[in-house]
């Protein structure tokens, strides 16, 4: 029985580690997406400065977890999100409604998709 303990503990550790990674990734992606969504709402209300502030907070939220995200996501995926913030911010400053809403929707849906991709649903596993 003693020889079974090590591999079983290893399996438990791997499972727990993966679960924590999934939950944390889901939390970060949704937190960032929620801030982007709030930026969109403020923009629609005409509060451009508040919208800009929410975008900055969202970007900070993403960037501050860059190390962890680089560990669990493909590097292209985490980089793609990082590259989407500057044009969104620029369109907010320019008060370009169409461009802003398009970029905001794109970034939010991409973040929601990233969080779903890490969850081991059967269609993700398959």
């Amino acid at each position: 029985m003693k020889r079974m303990i090590m591999p079983l503990l290893l399996l438990v550790f791997v499972t727990l580690f993966c679960s924590v990674c999934i939950l944390r990734t889901d939390q970060i992606c949704n937190e960032t997406a929620d801030l982007i969504k709030q930026a969109g709402e403020r923009f629609q209300q005409g509060s451009y400065e508040e919208a800009e502030d929410f975008i900055r907070r969202s970007q900070f939220c993403w960037d501050s977890h860059e190390g962890f995200l680089g560990m669990v996501l493909r590097h292209t995926e985490s980089d793609d999100v990082g590259f989407m913030f500057p044009p969104l911010l620029a369109s907010c400053r320019a008060k370009n409604r169409d461009a802003f809403l398009e970029k905001e929707l794109e970034l939010e849906s991409y973040l929601r998709q990233l969080s779903r991709m890490e969850i081991p649903y059967y269609f993700n596993v398959l």
Partner: peptide, 10 residues
């Protein structure tokens, strides 16, 4: 790899 190792040992 760790998963395979654990399964192989079990």
């Amino acid at each position: 790899i760790l998963t395979l190792l654990a399964l192989e040992l079990i």
